[in-house]
Nucleic acid binder design. Structure first.
Length: 491
RNA sequence: CGGGAUGUAGCGCAGUCCGGUAGCGUACACGCCUGGGGGGCGUGUGGUCGCAGGUUCAAAUCCUGUCAUCCCGACCA
């Protein structure tokens, strides 16, 4: 089992890369830093999209689509925004190719230089706010609650499948509000939507918090985030929701008339989650045998593997399985009956384990005679024999159990990897020997934060929303602090 | 952009030092046997050895250049 997969304990990073490729989620492409998302991986992403999209709509948001290209001048309108993204932008400078005169192939036509270069969006605030200026005149036009599903490009130096790719898929919400409080409420609402989705559907526990000034989104006044912990003790930022203040409204001159007839700049938020969530999903639950998927997001929830000699036996099994498949589908459970004669049962067992299918049924001659199925669950790798009459009930309850169990398991791991420390020495020890989140006092200064990052590579992942007030002293400088913040090494 | 390495069959690699016309595993195709945890045997398909020059009777191998990728740094909502 899992013979061909590197073990997590040997090389976690290698395990992850191999798993993503071998489970058919994605692979590297001919384009540096860009991945191909394969059908199985994309099916999971589609389920995530569907779940999130529903939640966005339930909270009053609508989808729209804005251009891939952003005129260079737009990007520079919000000073800190451009500073944050300038170093990783792909730029379109020409619009035409031609045959090289020396016959060496196709070259960029120097005569087709763009007057103003176009940036391939690293995020869409600027193009969207340029548009919002035209859409918003009155308080009656607010709030404006828009989301888009899109791809963006950030020219990252070092990429990894799903976790950091040069091009990635995401959704980005961009909202405009009449008051500061309304915008803050929106940013917090979305943080909670994200947390509900990630915990409820992905079964990945997260910590809600706000970012420190230095970790904030370029152009934001406040960045809310959800942070997850991976099995190797490193943190992964799973989603962010930004309160943008009036920064973009001012940069793009988006004003509205209040009830009183005064002109005011609107208040903004933006928020996003990306295909990076796929990485979080893989790294949170999977094991040395392959993927472990939460039933709510598994493209195949139940697989049925026939065990037979000769076509007569397969026919008998197929006949037995057909009504079961239909009954499960009627309950909206996705089932695959794998009657391929080209692979043996043992091969299929391993394959579906690798791909993280939550529940596997096997049925052979023995079961036909006894009126049973062998039911195996992916999370615990245990099997049991279940009577035909009970099998549907068993599957339904197993799917719920697995969803709950993998969440509990991940939560337990995370809870046991939040360590409270009060000295810098202890901090370094825990960071090196145990990993995970470290809750410590910090004096609130960017200098101290920077120093810790340089010396230990750990960053402040967030100031937890629910952190209790507790008088203490910064572990580095000894200055007073009123609550603990969470440090970790991060992806 | 600095330091290191690698480009040979779809994938993973050997062969390079010491030049002689390309091999192993796997995958793929076909046949038979097999079938309750990645099966066995046999036959077969598939490669301008990253690219461009050069040396040589002869280059995967030696020389020069070039491109790409990976790793370590720097960088990174």
């Amino acid at each position: 089992m899992g013979k061909n997969l590197t073990k997590r304990s040997e090389d976690y990073s290698k395990w992850y890369n191999e798993l993503v490729v071998k489970a058919d989620l994605a692979e590297n492409s001919g384009v540096r830093g860009c991945m191909v998302i394969k059908p199985y991986g994309f099916a999971i992403w589609e389920k995530m999209q569907a779940g999130l999209d529903k939640m966005f709509k339930e909270t009053g948001h609508e989808n729209a689509y804005f251009p891939l290209f952003i005129p260079k001048s737009y990007l520079s309108k919000e000073a800190s925004h451009v500073e944050g993204f300038a170093k990783e932008c792909a730029v379109v400078t020409h619009y035409r190719l031609k045959n090289a005169e020396d016959g060496s192939g196709i070259v960029v036509d120097p005569d087709a230089k763009l007057e103003e270069e176009l940036i391939v969006r690293p995020t869409s605030e600027t193009i969207i706010w340029d548009t919002y200026r035209k859409w918003i005149q009155s308080y009656r036009d607010l709030p404006l609650l828009i989301n888009q599903w899109a791809n963006v490009v950030r020219w990252e130096m070092r990429t990894r499948l799903f976790l950091r790719t040069a091009e990635f898929l995401w959704q980005e919400g961009h909202t405009a509000h009449a008051t500061k409080q309304e915008a803050i409420d929106e940013a917090e609402l979305i943080m909670n939507v994200y947390a509900d989705f990630v915990e409820g559907q992905m079964a990945v526990p997260v910590i809600k918090g706000v970012k420190t000034a230095s970790e904030r989104f370029a152009g934001a006044v406040e960045t809310y985030c959800i942070e997850a912990l991976m099995q190797d003790g490193k943190a992964l930022q799973a989603g962010t929701s930004h309160f943008l203040g009036q920064n973009f409204a001012k940069a793009f001159d988006v004003k509205f008339a209040t009830k009183e007839g005064k002109q005011e700049h609107v208040w903004a938020t933006s928020w996003g989650v990306s295909t990076r969530l796929m990485g979080a999903l893989v790294m949170t639950h999977s094991d040395d045998n392959g993927l472990v998927l939460p039933p709510k997001l598994a493209p195949i929830q139940v697989v049925i593997v026939p065990i037979y000699k000769g076509m007569e036996q397969l026919d008998a099994i197929s006949e037995k399985v057909a009504p079961l498949v239909k009954a499960l589908r009627d309950k909206d459970i996705s089932v695959k009956f794998d009657d391929r004669d080209t692979h043996k049962p043992g091969f299929k067992f391993n394959e579906y384990e690798l791909k993280g299918v939550p529940v596997r049924l096997a049925i052979g001659q023995r079961d036909l005679e006894n009126g049973t199925f062998e039911v195996a669950r992916r999370d615990t790798l245990t099997k049991e024999i279940v009577a035909e009459a009970d099998v549907i009930g068993k599957i339904v309850s197993l799917l719920q159990e697995i969803q709950a169990n993998i969440y509990e398991k991940a939560l337990k791991y995370r809870e046991s990897h939040i360590t409270f420390v009060d000295s810098y020495e202890e901090f370094k020890n825990v960071l090196e020997e145990k990993g995970g989140f470290i809750a410590a006092h910090w004096d609130g200064s960017a200098e101290t934060e920077e120093r810790i990052k340089e010396e230990t590579k750990a960053t402040i992942r967030c100031i937890p929303i629910n952190a209790e007030t507790e008088q203490g002293n910064c572990m580095v400088t000894g200055k007073p602090s009123s609550k603990r913040v969470l440090f970790a090494k991060a992806y």
